[in-house]
Amino acid sequence: MSGTDTDGERTTRRRTIAAVGAAITGAVAGCTGQQSSTAETTTTATHSVQLSPAGRVEFDAVPETVFTVFPQYADMAVALGHGDAVNAVYVPEMSGTTMNHYYRRLDGVSFEWEGLQDPLTDGLVKEQLYSLGSDVHLADPAWASAQTGWDRSDVDEIASQVGPWVGNFYSGTRATPPEGYDGYEYYPLWDLFGKVAAVFREQARYEALAAVHADLLSTIQSNLPPESERPTAVRATLANDGQSFYTYHLNAPGYWLADTRPLGAVDAFGDGEWDGLWGTVDYETMLEADPDVFLHLWGLTPNYSMASVRDSLATHEVGSQLTAVQNDRVYPGGMRYQGPLMNLFQLEMGAKQLYPEQFGEWPEYEDGAPYPEIPDDEWLFDRRRVASIVGGGA
């Protein structure tokens, strides 16, 4: 798909996508043409991506318009040099502002979120997907089929009439997918990123960023203190009522925990079992767990004021007794919906918050500010290298 495609050519190509997809998977689709082993480096050969639950999806060119729901996929597009292809993302101001909080430390990298559509303002709406006419939907077709007013036939319709689905949602927490998706496979965050990189034919960028990630993990895990010396911690969010907390595990499977699980802290609610993806506890239960460190999920987003959170905890009769509050170890956390660039920063952030003696102190953070500026010699990964990769450099 070139920049000179006419609307008619785009429509014809999408119909071709539908025809081939129906033959291959019956649900998701690609483009005609003979598959080539050199698809990663060729702009004319058909290439394919294999990702559960969609199966094999074929493309005859790099997508120019990309629909995303949760920002991990928008972050992937930015990381691969295709952020300007994104036409929708969940709560654009919140997602985009948070992404740019991190990108501020990557020279030349930004995400233009203003004007993007929110795919969930009124729930997933089929008419919106038709209107956007995206070349690919970086969203899970199993997840889409479970949305209000949707079923498998609606997912198939969008794949055949608009563009294929390439996404995997339930790997976030290894949750059970909807009925009808037997054989659903789960992927770690960076493996999922590799699949998306194949969609854009950006294997070199992916491999370079994956190497940065591997080095970061090695740096962190080789310097962790013995388990017996690690702090207890919670990942939680103060509810709007100011009297309860939404709590999340630190070390459970799933890419939503790709920034906390490698840090190996002791989960203060590690024995907790919740009916859904998170639990709800009151102040008394939080005090029973009494974590050394409180990581406030969404704290680096514009949705919460960390100053207000700290004040609420410190002035509450029970909250003021929390060890994390008394020792000034209530920190802003990032987002669960993290892509690769966000993951690098959130790993570094968590390492400094949990283990300042090993990785350096986490700087003071002001509400609404970008990710704090950290001296070069205290970086846990090279921002210049990452910015160069995203920008297309070596």
Results as ranks from 00 to 15, higher is better:
332 P>K: 01
164 P>I: 10
126 K>D: 07
251 N>D: 08
37 S>E: 09
54 A>K: 02
246 Y>W: 05
374 I>E: 05
220 I>W: 04
178 P>S: 01
348 E>N: 08
383 R>W: 06
307 A>V: 15
268 A>K: 03
204 A>R: 13
105 R>T: 00
120 L>W: 11
255 Y>W: 12
333 G>E: 05
110 S>I: 03
125 V>T: 13
313 L>N: 05
80 L>F: 10
276 G>E: 06
15 R>L: 13
220 I>C: 02
179 E>T: 15
92 P>D: 11
267 D>F: 15
237 T>Y: 05
52 S>K: 09
90 Y>M: 09
303 N>L: 14
319 G>Y: 07
285 T>N: 04
197 A>C: 12
231 P>E: 11
16 T>C: 13
337 Y>E: 14
112 E>S: 15
86 V>S: 11
175 A>G: 12
169 F>R: 04
231 P>T: 12
57 V>I: 12
94 M>R: 12
25 T>A: 01
330 V>F: 01
392 G>K: 12
388 S>W: 01
296 H>T: 10
17 I>S: 12
224 L>H: 02
158 I>K: 02
241 D>V: 10
190 W>V: 10
127 E>M: 06
31 C>W: 04
242 G>R: 08
27 A>Q: 07
289 A>I: 08
57 V>Y: 02
394 A>C: 04
185 E>V: 09
350 G>P: 10
149 G>W: 06
260 T>Q: 08
392 G>M: 06
109 V>C: 08
17 I>H: 15
329 R>T: 05
190 W>K: 10
390 V>T: 14
377 D>Q: 10
191 D>N: 11
301 T>W: 12
162 V>R: 12
289 A>E: 02
275 D>P: 00
90 Y>E: 08
74 A>P: 07
94 M>P: 00
362 W>T: 04
165 W>N: 00
109 V>R: 03
322 L>D: 08
46 T>E: 07
80 L>S: 10
386 V>Y: 01
119 P>E: 09
383 R>S: 04
300 L>F: 14
222 S>Q: 13
168 N>V: 04
191 D>F: 05
101 H>C: 10
314 A>Y: 05
341 L>G: 02
9 E>L: 13
257 L>V: 04
221 Q>C: 06
328 D>K: 07
136 V>N: 05
131 S>E: 14
12 T>F: 14
149 G>R: 06
52 S>Y: 09
341 L>R: 07
191 D>I: 14
191 D>S: 14
264 G>A: 13
191 D>A: 15
273 E>T: 14
216 L>W: 02
1 M>Q: 00
215 D>R: 10
235 R>L: 11
76 M>Q: 08
39 A>Y: 12
149 G>Q: 10
326 Q>V: 00
62 V>K: 09
15 R>M: 12
160 S>M: 14
44 T>K: 14
60 D>T: 11
327 N>P: 02
12 T>G: 02
271 D>N: 12
304 Y>K: 07
185 E>F: 03
257 L>Y: 12
136 V>C: 09
61 A>C: 13
269 F>D: 03
41 T>S: 15
300 L>Y: 15
24 I>N: 06
111 F>S: 06
380 L>M: 01
71 P>D: 09
162 V>W: 03
10 R>M: 08
213 H>G: 09
178 P>N: 01
205 R>N: 03
219 T>L: 06
123 G>S: 07
389 I>L: 00
78 V>P: 04
